[in-house]
Nucleic acid binder design. Structure first.
Length: 440
DNA sequence: CGTCCACGTCTAC
DNA sequence: TAGACCTGGACGG
Protein backbone atom coordinates (compact mmCIF):
# COMPACT_ATOMS: atom_id res chain seq x y z
CA UNK A 1 0.00 0.00 0.00
CA UNK A 2 2.79 2.35 0.01
CA UNK A 3 1.95 5.63 -1.57
CA UNK A 4 2.06 8.94 0.24
CA UNK A 5 -0.98 8.34 2.45
CA UNK A 6 0.24 4.96 3.61
CA UNK A 7 3.66 6.32 4.45
CA UNK A 8 2.06 9.04 6.50
CA UNK A 9 -0.25 6.60 8.22
CA UNK A 10 2.80 4.51 8.97
CA UNK A 11 4.40 7.46 10.73
CA UNK A 12 1.23 8.04 12.72
CA UNK A 13 1.16 4.38 13.61
CA UNK A 14 4.74 4.40 14.85
CA UNK A 15 4.19 7.51 16.93
CA UNK A 16 1.04 6.12 18.48
CA UNK A 17 2.47 2.71 19.23
CA UNK A 18 5.79 3.94 20.50
CA UNK A 19 4.58 6.83 22.57
CA UNK A 20 5.91 6.49 26.08
CA UNK A 21 7.89 3.40 25.26
CA UNK A 22 11.60 3.01 25.74
CA UNK A 23 13.60 0.94 23.32
CA UNK A 24 16.89 -0.69 24.04
CA UNK A 25 19.86 -2.44 22.52
CA UNK A 26 20.88 -2.63 18.92
CA UNK A 27 18.79 -2.31 15.82
CA UNK A 28 18.65 -5.70 14.16
CA UNK A 29 18.67 -6.37 10.45
CA UNK A 30 17.67 -9.66 8.89
CA UNK A 31 20.41 -11.63 7.17
CA UNK A 32 18.86 -11.74 3.76
CA UNK A 33 18.23 -8.06 3.45
CA UNK A 34 20.86 -6.19 1.49
CA UNK A 35 20.23 -2.79 2.97
CA UNK A 36 22.93 -1.43 5.28
CA UNK A 37 23.10 -2.16 8.97
CA UNK A 38 21.84 0.57 11.24
CA UNK A 39 24.73 1.22 13.60
CA UNK A 40 22.71 2.41 16.53
CA UNK A 41 22.90 0.85 19.99
CA UNK A 42 21.64 2.37 23.18
CA UNK A 43 20.43 1.19 26.56
CA UNK A 44 17.47 3.47 26.34
CA UNK A 45 16.09 5.43 23.45
CA UNK A 46 12.80 6.62 22.07
CA UNK A 47 11.42 6.51 18.55
CA UNK A 48 9.59 9.21 16.68
CA UNK A 49 8.45 9.20 13.09
CA UNK A 50 7.65 11.71 10.39
CA UNK A 51 6.80 11.44 6.74
CA UNK A 52 7.30 13.42 3.58
CA UNK A 53 5.84 12.21 0.32
CA UNK A 54 6.89 8.62 -0.11
CA UNK A 55 9.50 8.56 2.64
CA UNK A 56 9.43 8.11 6.39
CA UNK A 57 12.14 9.06 8.85
CA UNK A 58 12.45 7.37 12.21
CA UNK A 59 14.42 9.40 14.71
CA UNK A 60 16.09 7.32 17.39
CA UNK A 61 16.89 9.50 20.38
CA UNK A 62 18.95 8.37 23.39
CA UNK A 63 16.73 8.66 26.42
CA UNK A 64 18.25 10.14 29.52
CA UNK A 65 16.87 9.07 32.84
CA UNK A 66 15.85 12.24 34.51
CA UNK A 67 17.16 12.81 37.99
CA UNK A 68 20.31 10.97 38.64
CA UNK A 69 22.35 10.18 35.65
CA UNK A 70 22.15 6.53 36.36
CA UNK A 71 22.70 5.56 32.84
CA UNK A 72 26.09 4.13 32.49
CA UNK A 73 27.67 4.90 29.21
CA UNK A 74 28.22 1.51 27.78
CA UNK A 75 30.90 0.56 25.40
CA UNK A 76 29.45 1.46 22.09
CA UNK A 77 26.55 3.47 23.22
CA UNK A 78 25.03 5.85 20.77
CA UNK A 79 25.02 9.29 22.30
CA UNK A 80 23.25 11.24 19.65
CA UNK A 81 19.98 10.97 17.82
CA UNK A 82 20.00 9.12 14.55
CA UNK A 83 17.64 9.53 11.63
CA UNK A 84 16.85 6.47 9.55
CA UNK A 85 15.08 7.16 6.27
CA UNK A 86 12.80 4.55 4.80
CA UNK A 87 11.34 4.06 1.38
CA UNK A 88 8.71 1.33 1.31
CA UNK A 89 9.04 -0.15 -2.13
CA UNK A 90 5.98 -2.15 -3.08
CA UNK A 91 5.34 -3.87 0.21
CA UNK A 92 6.93 -2.13 3.14
CA UNK A 93 5.20 -1.13 6.38
CA UNK A 94 5.70 -1.03 10.11
CA UNK A 95 4.30 -3.47 12.56
CA UNK A 96 4.44 -3.66 16.32
CA UNK A 97 4.23 -7.09 17.88
CA UNK A 98 5.25 -9.23 20.78
CA UNK A 99 8.64 -10.79 20.59
CA UNK A 100 7.09 -14.14 19.80
CA UNK A 101 5.13 -12.84 16.92
CA UNK A 102 7.74 -11.25 14.75
CA UNK A 103 6.57 -11.53 11.17
CA UNK A 104 8.47 -13.56 8.62
CA UNK A 105 9.56 -10.61 6.57
CA UNK A 106 10.56 -8.27 9.37
CA UNK A 107 13.82 -6.91 8.01
CA UNK A 108 14.69 -4.25 10.54
CA UNK A 109 13.74 -4.54 14.20
CA UNK A 110 13.67 -2.26 17.22
CA UNK A 111 13.18 -3.80 20.68
CA UNK A 112 11.49 -2.31 23.71
CA UNK A 113 12.99 -2.61 27.15
CA UNK A 114 9.85 -4.23 28.50
CA UNK A 115 9.76 -7.48 30.28
CA UNK A 116 8.28 -9.57 27.63
CA UNK A 117 9.83 -7.29 25.11
CA UNK A 118 7.98 -6.09 22.09
CA UNK A 119 9.22 -5.23 18.68
CA UNK A 120 8.73 -2.53 16.10
CA UNK A 121 9.47 -4.16 12.75
CA UNK A 122 9.90 -2.85 9.25
CA UNK A 123 8.20 -5.58 7.31
CA UNK A 124 8.78 -5.87 3.60
CA UNK A 125 7.84 -9.02 1.76
CA UNK A 126 9.31 -8.15 -1.58
CA UNK A 127 12.36 -6.34 -0.23
CA UNK A 128 12.10 -3.49 -2.68
CA UNK A 129 12.05 -1.17 0.30
CA UNK A 130 15.17 0.53 1.52
CA UNK A 131 16.52 2.44 4.48
CA UNK A 132 19.57 4.52 5.21
CA UNK A 133 21.02 5.31 8.59
CA UNK A 134 21.90 8.95 9.15
CA UNK A 135 19.81 9.67 6.14
CA UNK A 136 17.89 12.69 4.99
CA UNK A 137 14.95 13.29 2.69
CA UNK A 138 16.12 12.16 -0.68
CA UNK A 139 17.49 14.92 -2.80
CA UNK A 140 15.58 15.30 -6.00
CA UNK A 141 12.30 14.35 -4.44
CA UNK A 142 9.96 17.29 -4.45
CA UNK A 143 7.79 18.72 -1.68
CA UNK A 144 5.17 16.44 -0.16
CA UNK A 145 1.88 16.72 -2.00
CA UNK A 146 0.01 16.36 1.28
CA UNK A 147 1.92 18.44 3.77
CA UNK A 148 3.93 20.88 1.72
CA UNK A 149 1.19 21.82 -0.63
CA UNK A 150 2.22 25.38 -1.31
CA UNK A 151 5.76 24.55 -2.27
CA UNK A 152 4.62 21.46 -4.16
CA UNK A 153 2.40 23.62 -6.30
CA UNK A 154 5.08 26.20 -6.76
CA UNK A 155 7.62 23.57 -7.71
CA UNK A 156 5.42 22.26 -10.48
CA UNK A 157 4.15 25.51 -11.91
CA UNK A 158 7.52 27.19 -11.99
CA UNK A 159 9.19 24.32 -13.80
CA UNK A 160 6.82 23.51 -16.60
CA UNK A 161 9.59 23.89 -19.14
CA UNK A 162 11.25 20.78 -17.71
CA UNK A 163 11.13 17.91 -20.16
CA UNK A 164 9.50 15.88 -17.44
CA UNK A 165 6.33 17.58 -18.56
CA UNK A 166 6.70 16.43 -22.14
CA UNK A 167 5.29 13.09 -21.09
CA UNK A 168 1.71 12.00 -20.72
CA UNK A 169 0.21 13.39 -17.54
CA UNK A 170 -0.29 9.92 -16.10
CA UNK A 171 3.44 9.27 -16.30
CA UNK A 172 4.51 12.66 -15.04
CA UNK A 173 2.32 12.14 -12.00
CA UNK A 174 4.63 9.34 -10.95
CA UNK A 175 7.70 11.58 -11.14
CA UNK A 176 8.66 12.03 -7.51
CA UNK A 177 10.69 15.11 -8.28
CA UNK A 178 7.41 16.90 -8.78
CA UNK A 179 4.76 14.67 -7.27
CA UNK A 180 6.31 13.23 -4.15
CA UNK A 181 3.70 10.94 -2.69
CA UNK A 182 1.67 10.11 -5.76
CA UNK A 183 1.68 6.49 -6.87
CA UNK A 184 -0.17 4.23 -9.22
CA UNK A 185 -3.56 4.17 -7.57
CA UNK A 186 -3.54 7.86 -6.72
CA UNK A 187 -2.75 8.98 -10.25
CA UNK A 188 -5.72 7.01 -11.50
CA UNK A 189 -8.06 8.35 -8.84
CA UNK A 190 -6.91 11.93 -9.36
CA UNK A 191 -7.24 11.93 -13.12
CA UNK A 192 -10.56 10.18 -12.83
CA UNK A 193 -11.99 12.90 -10.64
CA UNK A 194 -11.41 15.45 -13.37
CA UNK A 195 -11.96 13.07 -16.23
CA UNK A 196 -8.59 13.99 -17.65
CA UNK A 197 -7.46 11.51 -20.32
CA UNK A 198 -4.27 9.90 -18.96
CA UNK A 199 -2.26 10.23 -22.15
CA UNK A 200 -2.60 13.95 -22.70
CA UNK A 201 0.70 15.79 -22.50
CA UNK A 202 1.35 16.91 -18.95
CA UNK A 203 2.34 20.44 -19.86
CA UNK A 204 -0.88 20.92 -21.74
CA UNK A 205 -2.91 20.00 -18.71
CA UNK A 206 -0.83 21.99 -16.26
CA UNK A 207 -0.48 25.14 -18.30
CA UNK A 208 -4.19 25.49 -18.21
CA UNK A 209 -4.14 25.24 -14.49
CA UNK A 210 -1.52 27.87 -14.14
CA UNK A 211 -3.60 30.36 -15.99
CA UNK A 212 -6.79 29.60 -14.25
CA UNK A 213 -5.26 29.85 -10.86
CA UNK A 214 -3.33 32.99 -11.24
CA UNK A 215 -5.36 34.81 -8.70
CA UNK A 216 -7.37 32.18 -7.09
CA UNK A 217 -7.10 30.92 -3.62
CA UNK A 218 -6.26 27.40 -2.81
CA UNK A 219 -8.89 24.94 -2.06
CA UNK A 220 -9.96 25.17 1.49
CA UNK A 221 -9.34 22.11 3.44
CA UNK A 222 -12.58 20.35 3.88
CA UNK A 223 -12.14 20.10 7.61
CA UNK A 224 -15.55 18.66 7.85
CA UNK A 225 -15.87 17.36 11.30
CA UNK A 226 -19.49 16.75 10.87
CA UNK A 227 -19.94 16.13 7.23
CA UNK A 228 -21.54 19.48 6.66
CA UNK A 229 -22.48 20.22 3.19
CA UNK A 230 -20.51 23.36 3.25
CA UNK A 231 -18.03 22.46 0.61
CA UNK A 232 -18.39 25.71 -1.16
CA UNK A 233 -15.31 25.21 -3.18
CA UNK A 234 -14.49 26.29 -6.63
CA UNK A 235 -13.73 23.55 -9.05
CA UNK A 236 -10.60 21.88 -7.89
CA UNK A 237 -7.75 21.75 -10.34
CA UNK A 238 -5.36 18.89 -10.87
CA UNK A 239 -2.77 20.13 -8.42
CA UNK A 240 -5.24 20.67 -5.64
CA UNK A 241 -6.52 17.14 -6.14
CA UNK A 242 -2.94 15.87 -5.83
CA UNK A 243 -3.26 17.29 -2.33
CA UNK A 244 -6.82 16.52 -1.30
CA UNK A 245 -7.23 13.06 -2.75
CA UNK A 246 -4.28 11.61 -0.79
CA UNK A 247 -5.62 13.36 2.30
CA UNK A 248 -8.90 11.53 1.84
CA UNK A 249 -6.98 8.31 2.23
CA UNK A 250 -5.26 9.61 5.33
CA UNK A 251 -8.70 10.33 6.68
CA UNK A 252 -9.76 6.77 5.95
CA UNK A 253 -6.83 5.78 8.13
CA UNK A 254 -7.87 8.00 10.96
CA UNK A 255 -11.15 6.24 10.83
CA UNK A 256 -9.87 2.75 10.82
CA UNK A 257 -8.05 1.96 7.65
CA UNK A 258 -4.70 0.58 8.63
CA UNK A 259 -2.38 -0.44 5.84
CA UNK A 260 -0.42 -2.72 8.09
CA UNK A 261 -3.49 -4.51 9.13
CA UNK A 262 -4.45 -5.43 5.68
CA UNK A 263 -7.63 -3.47 5.70
CA UNK A 264 -7.14 -2.93 2.09
CA UNK A 265 -10.82 -3.52 1.58
CA UNK A 266 -11.56 -0.10 3.02
CA UNK A 267 -9.24 1.49 0.52
CA UNK A 268 -10.71 -0.57 -2.28
CA UNK A 269 -14.17 0.53 -1.32
CA UNK A 270 -12.95 4.11 -1.56
CA UNK A 271 -11.40 3.71 -4.98
CA UNK A 272 -13.56 4.86 -7.84
CA UNK A 273 -11.29 3.94 -10.72
CA UNK A 274 -8.15 1.98 -9.92
CA UNK A 275 -8.74 -1.67 -10.54
CA UNK A 276 -12.44 -1.10 -10.62
CA UNK A 277 -14.57 -3.30 -12.78
CA UNK A 278 -15.82 -1.44 -15.79
CA UNK A 279 -12.89 0.94 -16.00
CA UNK A 280 -10.35 0.79 -18.80
CA UNK A 281 -6.67 0.14 -18.34
CA UNK A 282 -3.53 0.35 -20.42
CA UNK A 283 0.16 -0.09 -19.92
CA UNK A 284 2.00 3.20 -19.92
CA UNK A 285 5.48 3.70 -21.41
CA UNK A 286 7.05 2.29 -18.29
CA UNK A 287 4.95 -0.81 -18.24
CA UNK A 288 2.77 0.38 -15.40
CA UNK A 289 -0.95 -0.07 -15.61
CA UNK A 290 -2.97 3.09 -15.74
CA UNK A 291 -6.69 2.85 -14.99
CA UNK A 292 -9.07 5.36 -16.43
CA UNK A 293 -12.50 5.90 -17.82
CA UNK A 294 -13.28 6.93 -21.33
CA UNK A 295 -10.82 8.50 -23.73
CA UNK A 296 -7.19 7.53 -23.15
CA UNK A 297 -5.82 10.62 -24.86
CA UNK A 298 -3.38 11.05 -27.76
CA UNK A 299 -0.05 9.91 -26.32
CA UNK A 300 -0.94 6.28 -25.86
CA UNK A 301 2.08 4.02 -26.26
CA UNK A 302 1.85 2.84 -29.81
CA UNK A 303 1.70 -0.76 -30.59
CA UNK A 304 0.87 -2.26 -27.30
CA UNK A 305 -2.44 -1.79 -25.80
CA UNK A 306 -3.27 -3.69 -22.87
CA UNK A 307 -6.38 -4.29 -21.12
CA UNK A 308 -7.56 -6.99 -19.06
CA UNK A 309 -10.09 -6.23 -16.56
CA UNK A 310 -10.34 -9.02 -14.22
CA UNK A 311 -12.21 -9.11 -11.08
CA UNK A 312 -12.44 -11.76 -8.55
CA UNK A 313 -15.43 -12.30 -6.47
CA UNK A 314 -14.89 -12.67 -2.84
CA UNK A 315 -14.44 -16.30 -2.25
CA UNK A 316 -15.53 -16.60 1.26
CA UNK A 317 -18.75 -15.42 2.51
CA UNK A 318 -20.55 -16.65 -0.41
CA UNK A 319 -24.02 -17.41 -0.98
CA UNK A 320 -23.10 -20.97 -1.53
CA UNK A 321 -24.65 -20.99 -4.87
CA UNK A 322 -22.17 -21.82 -7.47
CA UNK A 323 -23.73 -19.55 -9.97
CA UNK A 324 -20.96 -17.12 -9.49
CA UNK A 325 -19.55 -18.90 -12.39
CA UNK A 326 -18.27 -15.75 -13.88
CA UNK A 327 -14.90 -15.65 -12.35
CA UNK A 328 -12.70 -13.67 -14.54
CA UNK A 329 -13.49 -11.37 -17.26
CA UNK A 330 -11.03 -10.30 -19.74
CA UNK A 331 -11.94 -7.96 -22.40
CA UNK A 332 -9.90 -6.38 -25.02
CA UNK A 333 -10.25 -2.80 -25.71
CA UNK A 334 -9.21 -1.68 -29.08
CA UNK A 335 -7.75 1.73 -28.95
CA UNK A 336 -8.90 3.23 -32.12
CA UNK A 337 -6.68 6.12 -32.89
CA UNK A 338 -7.97 8.64 -30.45
CA UNK A 339 -6.21 11.25 -32.49
CA UNK A 340 -9.53 11.66 -34.19
CA UNK A 341 -10.02 14.71 -32.18
CA UNK A 342 -13.25 14.68 -30.35
CA UNK A 343 -15.39 13.25 -33.03
CA UNK A 344 -17.62 11.12 -30.99
CA UNK A 345 -16.03 9.48 -28.04
CA UNK A 346 -19.09 8.14 -26.49
CA UNK A 347 -17.27 7.35 -23.35
CA UNK A 348 -19.32 4.69 -21.81
CA UNK A 349 -16.78 2.07 -22.50
CA UNK A 350 -15.38 1.06 -25.79
CA UNK A 351 -17.22 -1.61 -27.59
CA UNK A 352 -14.23 -3.80 -28.02
CA UNK A 353 -14.77 -4.10 -31.64
CA UNK A 354 -12.02 -5.58 -33.64
CA UNK A 355 -9.00 -6.80 -31.89
CA UNK A 356 -5.99 -4.62 -31.67
CA UNK A 357 -3.91 -4.86 -34.74
CA UNK A 358 -1.07 -7.30 -34.52
CA UNK A 359 0.80 -5.93 -31.61
CA UNK A 360 1.80 -9.21 -30.12
CA UNK A 361 4.47 -7.28 -28.38
CA UNK A 362 5.21 -9.19 -25.32
CA UNK A 363 4.59 -6.78 -22.61
CA UNK A 364 7.36 -6.16 -20.21
CA UNK A 365 6.99 -8.37 -17.27
CA UNK A 366 8.27 -7.95 -13.85
CA UNK A 367 11.38 -9.79 -14.84
CA UNK A 368 12.61 -13.17 -15.59
CA UNK A 369 12.91 -16.04 -13.31
CA UNK A 370 16.26 -16.62 -11.82
CA UNK A 371 16.54 -19.86 -10.10
CA UNK A 372 17.99 -18.97 -6.82
CA UNK A 373 16.34 -18.76 -3.53
CA UNK A 374 17.85 -17.70 -0.34
CA UNK A 375 14.41 -17.59 1.12
CA UNK A 376 14.04 -15.49 4.13
CA UNK A 377 15.44 -17.33 7.01
CA UNK A 378 13.04 -17.15 9.78
CA UNK A 379 15.11 -15.16 12.06
CA UNK A 380 14.34 -16.58 15.36
CA UNK A 381 12.74 -19.88 15.73
CA UNK A 382 9.30 -19.54 14.48
CA UNK A 383 6.86 -22.02 15.58
CA UNK A 384 3.63 -20.91 14.23
CA UNK A 385 2.88 -22.70 11.09
CA UNK A 386 1.28 -20.77 8.40
CA UNK A 387 -1.87 -19.05 9.26
CA UNK A 388 -3.50 -20.86 6.45
CA UNK A 389 -4.76 -18.64 3.79
CA UNK A 390 -8.21 -19.52 4.87
CA UNK A 391 -10.17 -16.60 5.82
CA UNK A 392 -12.53 -16.92 8.65
CA UNK A 393 -16.01 -16.83 7.22
CA UNK A 394 -16.54 -13.48 8.71
CA UNK A 395 -19.88 -12.49 9.90
CA UNK A 396 -21.06 -11.00 6.75
CA UNK A 397 -20.21 -7.57 8.00
CA UNK A 398 -17.63 -7.26 5.41
CA UNK A 399 -20.01 -6.36 2.72
CA UNK A 400 -18.51 -3.01 2.23
CA UNK A 401 -20.41 -1.55 -0.51
CA UNK A 402 -22.06 1.69 -1.08
CA UNK A 403 -22.83 3.67 1.96
CA UNK A 404 -22.54 0.75 4.20
CA UNK A 405 -18.92 1.55 4.04
CA UNK A 406 -19.47 4.88 5.58
CA UNK A 407 -20.98 3.24 8.56
CA UNK A 408 -18.27 0.73 8.92
CA UNK A 409 -15.69 3.41 8.84
CA UNK A 410 -17.37 5.59 11.34
CA UNK A 411 -18.14 2.78 13.63
CA UNK A 412 -14.69 1.50 13.99
CA UNK A 413 -13.11 4.75 14.82
CA UNK A 414 -12.29 3.65 18.28
CA UNK A 415 -9.30 1.78 19.48
CA UNK A 416 -6.76 0.23 17.29
CA UNK A 417 -5.70 -2.85 19.07
CA UNK A 418 -1.99 -2.97 19.42
CA UNK A 419 -1.91 -6.62 18.73
CA UNK A 420 -1.56 -7.39 15.14
CA UNK A 421 -4.24 -9.75 14.20
CA UNK A 422 -3.23 -12.48 11.89
CA UNK A 423 -6.31 -12.50 9.83
CA UNK A 424 -5.62 -11.49 6.35
CA UNK A 425 -7.95 -9.45 4.37
CA UNK A 426 -9.70 -11.38 1.77
CA UNK A 427 -9.02 -10.36 -1.72
CA UNK A 428 -12.07 -9.03 -3.29
CA UNK A 429 -13.14 -7.02 -6.16
CA UNK A 430 -16.20 -5.03 -6.29
CA UNK A 431 -18.56 -6.62 -8.68
CA UNK A 432 -20.20 -3.45 -9.70
CA UNK A 433 -19.74 -0.07 -8.33
CA UNK A 434 -23.15 1.29 -9.11
CA UNK A 435 -22.81 4.19 -6.82
CA UNK A 436 -21.00 7.02 -8.24
CA UNK A 437 -20.77 10.56 -7.22
CA UNK A 438 -21.60 10.15 -3.61
CA UNK A 439 -19.37 13.00 -2.82
CA UNK A 440 -19.42 14.38 0.59
C1' DC B 1 2.41 -26.65 -11.79
C1' DG B 2 3.11 -22.46 -14.66
C1' DT B 3 1.93 -17.62 -15.95
C1' DC B 4 0.58 -13.06 -14.84
C1' DC B 5 0.24 -9.44 -11.76
C1' DA B 6 1.17 -6.26 -7.77
C1' DC B 7 0.42 0.39 -3.90
C1' DG B 8 8.39 1.49 -6.65
C1' DT B 9 12.36 2.68 -7.49
C1' DC B 10 17.33 2.04 -9.50
C1' DT B 11 21.12 1.50 -12.96
C1' DA B 12 22.96 -0.27 -16.90
C1' DC B 13 23.13 -1.03 -22.11
C1' DT C 1 13.78 2.18 -22.42
C1' DA C 2 14.66 -2.42 -20.95
C1' DG C 3 15.74 -5.14 -17.19
C1' DA C 4 16.77 -6.04 -12.01
C1' DC C 5 15.32 -6.63 -7.67
C1' DC C 6 11.72 -9.99 -4.76
C1' DT C 7 7.63 -12.75 -2.76
C1' DG C 8 3.15 -14.46 -3.11
C1' DG C 9 -1.79 -14.53 -4.48
C1' DA C 10 -5.08 -15.42 -8.24
C1' DC C 11 -5.99 -17.99 -12.06
C1' DG C 12 -5.47 -21.37 -15.94
C1' DG C 13 -4.44 -26.04 -17.51
Amino acid sequence: MPEGPELHLASLFVNRMCEGLVFTGAVEKSEVNKNPEVPFCCDAYVIKAQSRGKEVILTLTPFKNDGDSKRKVGKHQSQHPMDVVFRFGMSGFFRFTSDDDIPKHAHLRFYTNESPRRVLSFEDTRRFGSWQANGTWQKDRGPCVMFEYESFRENVLSNLSDKAFDKPICETLLNQKYFNGIGNYLRAEILFRLQIPPFVKARTVLEGIELKNENKKEIKKTTDTAGKKGVTVETPDLLSLCHTVPLEVVKLGENGYTPAKAEYSVLQAWMQCYSVDGMNSLSDHNGRTIWFKGDPGPMVPKGAKSRKIKWKIQKDHDYTDSKKAKKTHTESIAIEKPAKKKDNIKVKKESATSKAQGGSKRQKKDTKRVKTEPADENTKSKKQGKRSSKVPPRTGTNKIKGQHVEEVIKTKRNSVTSKESATKAKPQRRSSGTRRGRSR
